[in-house]
């Protein structure tokens, strides 16, 4: 295998991992605070659609990004309202929201775009960091990415900082581990959890926009095709730790990139196996076969004082 192919492979691994990285970071914060946000898929799809719509309508992908990110917020609010205020089953609500989002975006897409569906949509531009862009081969193939990816990297670093070095991070962690203690200390469990779910909505919106106006420059029905569930699988495989979760996202991205890469170097592996791989890895992880799983203690449990 040539160096060039290697660089192409790494480049597409990062590109394919990007939406997972963005959405999983938000979801991790939400799960750490105790809310299993199964509606990630629906939020991403909503973000992808709204981003594409606004970008197409205004011709400005930045407005698309803004609109797409904000559009995921009402969906997140719905999940938060159901799982925190109403204390409804979080998984059931998530699945309901996902079905609803798939139906609603498909419906809206057909109504609004109709026959113009093949039109290209203005997308986000690419960018590569100075110095790195001058590295031969890697500069073009690996570092030349949609700028949103670099912004995402920054957000992940900030998230790590907030979660591990600030009082807010401590409180969020405590919400998922010992909500009663948070309540006793005078903080509002509900408010913190709302915050976490809304953050995961923002990140899912960004991730959806990355797919529609960042990577593919168009919208297709159900285009997130399970990326939200994959992000949840990455969190499980990463054992609810940010660093390991990032690695898991990159691993899943690599599995997706192999789909194009292996045939190119003459190795035939069924696509289905590569697509299946992340889910198998996540299953092995939750089965406790690679060390003990340490999910947040109150994950998916609504908190009430009584």
């Amino acid at each position: 295998m040539s160096w060039e192919m290697m660089a192409v492979f790494i480049g597409s691994t990062i590109r394919l991992a990007a939406p997972l990285l963005l959405s999983a970071t938000g979801e991790l914060v939400s799960q750490r605070a105790g809310v299993l946000n199964m509606s990630l898929e629906g939020m991403m799809l909503t973000g992808a659609f709204a981003g594409a719509l606004a970008s197409w309508y205004t011709g400005n992908p930045l407005i698309g990004l803004l609109f797409g990110t904000l559009a995921a917020l009402p969906v997140a609010l719905l999940q938060a309202f159901f799982s925190i205020t109403l204390k409804a089953n979080q998984i059931v609500t998530g699945i309901g929201i996902n079905i609803l989002a798939l139906g609603a975006t498909t419906l809206a897409y057909r109504e609004i775009f109709g026959s113009r569906s093949s039109e290209a949509i203005p997308g986000l531009s690419k960018w590569s960091p100075p110095v790195l862009r001058d590295i031969p081969l890697w500069g073009d193939q690996v570092f030349d990415q949609v700028w949103l990816l670099y912004l995402g990297g920054l957000i992940i670093l900030l998230t790590a900082l907030v979660m591990h070095r600030t009082a807010l991070g401590l409180a969020l962690h405590a919400c998922g581990a010992e909500p009663r203690a948070v309540d006793k200390s005078g903080l509002s469990v509900a408010r913190l959890r709302y915050l976490a779910v809304l953050f995961s909505g923002l990140m899912a919106g960004l991730a959806g926009c990355f797919i529609s106006i960042g990577d593919i420059h168009t919208f297709t029905e159900g285009m997130t095709s399970g990326a939200g569930y994959l992000a949840i699988a990455a969190i499980i495989f990463g054992n609810w730790k940010l660093g390991r979760m990032v690695l898991a996202c990159l691993l899943f991205g690599a599995a997706a990139a192999l789909k194009f890469f292996l045939p190119a170097i003459g190795i035939q592996v069924p696509n289905a196996l590569l697509i299946m791989l992340p889910y198998v890895l996540a299953l092995i992880a939750v089965a406790g076969l690679i060390g003990r799983q340490t999910a947040p203690g109150s994950l998916a449990q609504p908190y009430s004082r009584s």
Partner: peptide, 17 residues
């Protein structure tokens, strides 16, 4: 679009929850 049925289903699940 039959996606309408999906919307109806989603609303059923959420109302029920």
């Amino acid at each position: 679009p039959s996606a309408l049925v999906l919307v109806v289903q989603g609303v059923i699940i959420l109302t029920l929850a």
